[in-house]
Each structure stands twice: as C-alpha cells, then as structure tokens.
Nucleic acid binder design. Sequence first.
RNA 1: GGCGCCGUGCCCAAGUGGUUUAAGGGGGCGGAUUGCAAAUCCGUUAUUCGCCGGUUCGAAUCCGGCCGGCGCCUCCA
Length: 521
Amino acid sequence: MSIRLYNTLTKTKELFEPIAPGRVGIYLCGPTVYKEAHIGHMVGPVIFDTIKRYLTYNGFEVNWVVNITDVDDKLIAQSQERGISMSQVATEMTMDYCANLLAMGVDQITSMPRATENMDEIVGFIEGLIEKGFAYESDGDVFFDVQKDRQYGKLSNRSADDQQGEGGGAAAKKRSASDFALWKSAKAGQPAWDSPWGQGRPGWHIECSAMSRRLLGESFDIHGGGLDLMFPHHENEIAQSECCHGTPMAKYWMHNGLLRSGEAGKVGGKGDRESQAEESVEQAASGKMSRSAGAGGLRGQIERHGGEKIRFFLLKTHYRSTVVYSEAALDEAAIALDKFYVFFERYERIAGRTFYLAAGDDRQLNTQRSEGDFAPSDSGLLAEVKNYRDTYLAKMDDDFNSGGAVSELFNLLGALNKFADQQHLEEASKRTQAAIDQFLRGVETLRELAAILGLFLKPVTSTSSGGVEVVLDKLVQTFIQMRADARTNKDFAMSDRIRDDLTAAGITLEDRKEGTTWRLG
RNA sequence: GGCGCCGUGCCCAAGUGGUUUAAGGGGGCGGAUUGCAAAUCCGUUAUUCGCCGGUUCGAAUCCGGCCGGCGCCUCCA
C-alpha cells in the first residue's frame, strides 16, 4: 500500500512520505469569521476531514490544524456596522462555523488557533524577518521585501511584478509595489495590539506562517486550502516562512477546487451573448460562490437537506474539480444516498437491530487498514466484497479519489442487496444462518469503507423531536392497519387511496412478506 | 494582457499509455417481483472520450493547433 497525492508545488502526483515516519502534520487555511459561512466554505474541511480519516485508517497519527482569522478589515467593518466589538463578531461567527462543521460530520480537527490569540508568535515572526533582512518597517507598517526572495512565485508560477499589492495609502510606504504588509499600523478606534513598531494589527498572511510554525513546526507535511488562495496568500506564506527558516514550509501543497453556483439554468454557457445588459443578474445567479453574491444560508441548507447529504454531494466529485452546486444536483445526490438509507432499514429487518453502532456495541468498526479480513478461500459474496474493497482502497490511495471510491460503495451495496434477494434473508423460513453470517460480514465492510468518507456513522438527525416521531409512527401504523383490512376485503380503491394520500403527505409505504413498512420521502 | 484548470453517454461523473470495445449515480426503456405500487434484482441506454493533425506496435489518456467553458491576477475556502 502506498498513497500518492497531487502536489500543487510540483504539479505532479507524488508518493506520500511524511517528514517524520508515522506522523502527519496538516495545515488548512480556515475562514475569516466576519459573516456566516456558506456551503463553499465546507469543501476544504470536508475533504481534509476525509483525508485525515484515510491517513488515520492507514496507521498515521495526524495533527490537523485549521486557523480562524479573527482580525481583519472586514471584521472591523462588520463590528462598526453592527455596533458590537470585533471579538463579538468573531466569536459569533466562529460558533456558526463550528456548528456547520459538526453538522457536516467534520470532527477530526486537532486544533483551531485564532490569530488574536497568537500575537506574540506573530510579532516574533515579523521581528525574525526584519532581523534577517527580509522585511522592513515604514512609518509604523512592516512590509515583506519581495525583491529579497529569489524563489518568490514558485507555487503559482508568477513573478514578483505580477503582485499588484495593496493600493491607496500603503503604496507610498512600500519599497516596491509587490511588497505586502506583515503589520499594519492602527487607525483611530480600531482594535490594536502592541508591537515594536507601535500599535497595530497583523497583515493577512503572517498568522498562517506564525501559527503553523507554533503548532506543526518550521516544516510540516501538508498545507491545504482553496484554489483561490494559491496566489497571493499561499505564495506569501511560503515567502515568509521559507525566508525566515531556510527550509521548505510544507512538503505537499494541496488545493481543492471551488464550488460554483449553477442555478438559473445557465448550463449551455451561451446565455451571456445576448444579455450583456443583464450581466450583473447573470453573475449573481451563476459563478463562484461568494458571500457577496448571496451564496449564504448554509445553516438553512443544512436544516433543509441535512449535513450528510451535503457531505456526500461534495465527496462524490474529485476534490480538485470544480463542483457546480444547485438544488437539482443536491437532489440527485439525495436520491443516490437514499439507496443506502433504504438498505439500512433492510439490514434492520434482517439483523434485528439498527445499522448504526452504539457505544459498547459488539459489532466492531474496523478503523485500521488490514489485509487479513478475508481468506483466500472466501467465495461468493465475500470474494466480491473483498474485490470491491480492494478497488475502493486503491482509488483512495490515488490522490484521495473519493468520487471513484463512492462508486465501489455502490457496487458493494448492489452485491449485498442481490445476496439478500437470492438468499431470501428477509424470510425467516427460507434463510440460513450461514447466509446471514456472510451478509453481516459484508455489511461490516460497507461500514468500514463508508466511515473513511465520514458517512453513515450515526443516524441522520431529523428536525423533529423523538416524541413527535413516536406519535407519527403510531399514526401511520393505524393507516397501515386500515389499509391491510381494506386489502383483505379486496377493497383496492380504498387501500390505494390510503397509500396515495400518505404518499402525498411524504410517507412512502412498502409492502413486504413480513408486513408493511413506511419511511419518509 | 499574464498564470492556470477543464471539455467523457440525455444529465452528473471516475478513469490520464495496453487487464477499459470506458466505473458509479440520476434519468429513459424492457423484464422479474407486487392486487397495483414502493423497495430490490436482471437486461438495455458511448466501438466512443470537443475538433483536426502528430508520436507510438498501441491513446480518452502523450505532443501541437483550433473551438468551447471556467478560475486566479482585488477580499475570498
């Protein structure tokens, strides 16, 4: 087994070998917490959550850091607009962000450092750069001297001249337009921290260099972020860290593709020719997800769809691809996911208990990769299961190809359903214990593989409370009994009417040999 | 203008030199099952991978050109 991943720095797939054997340090650029998160902010966390799960499954000990940027122009603007302190804005939005992460099943983050809690580290880092001659102070501001960095631009393949830099007042203070701010002097009424250069606050890029060094060391294994951060953010992080330390900042750079909005039916890509005047409308409806374009409402989306559906939707596609988001695309993912949920109910009828593991369950979730789970003599279902498992792992080994892996999950699901059909596992009189045992082992493999993607670990939480669900079940059972009576009397008009009305209410009935079951949707 | 990415069936999407005359999902069609459904299973839906050349014994996969879509270069996950 060997994992390969695509390194943006070299633009090739490389064999993954951590700097220290068995241990992996990952840094992912997190959000600036000034407004509520939107679905695009979940792409990176979901992918890296999956990457960490997979690395852990492969026996690595993973330290995954996601930073929170809680000091920035936009936060200041937000606090002034709302008449509350910047830290209040930050706290509120950080909580929103974390709640969203948890709803998406992202619970693998080791630490989430905040910029404002690392001011000493940040100031110290800047001092180090000045000492080494890579940065200079200018009237209370400190800038990175891009001309001094001979390697500048190696990640994004740009020259220093391409860097526009900040315009306005800062330009006059810089030696070169491409220099970027490490420290910004405070303006009246703005949050500020003490420094050797007077009151001020850090520039955008420095916190990542400072905090990654504190938590992961001068050189760590994987640095991730959205494709849009490659330049200038990551380029500048590299400049800061590598000039300061003289060693590579990260061994592998991974960039995830961005989410685009695909609403408004702009599929053919030909809509803009005739509607130049309506350009702004077009852009609002289709284009990169951004907070300014009104892509917000992640919380509402999670409430409507559930975090697992969105997670599955994101994982269906390779992480480096652009994903076009639309309600229709999400619905399609939901239908696919439903096949698993329906299967879990089937499992429950066969196994006599829920698919989901509880604390102290005698069924074990296999959390470590091993080859000894299947004997060469296994045939039939288990041989098929082994085959799909091997393919699944091979796909994950190849640059975390979650999209390809998902297809093996479906193959596995199909094999299990087919086996349950052929062996009549739902009919007590026809099934054999041997067949059930095989089936259960196959399901354990499905559980093991899905867990790598962070899927099916716990029941999908419904918005309604448990009490309501109990009442609803009693109600539906009453209808099911009425319908059964009608069917006994061959009153199919009545039985169909009951079922149709329930369907219209969002309840699907399923008749099977052992009785009628129901589910939502 | 500079730097990149992408173009696979009706739709989404994996595959990036031979085991692929191309996974998986959605949708369509036909069948099994069912009182009828739902769910499930079976079969079917691309000899072909934007177009044109080239390299190679062999390409969807490599190279060149063209066409089309998208991103970054300003804040952005």
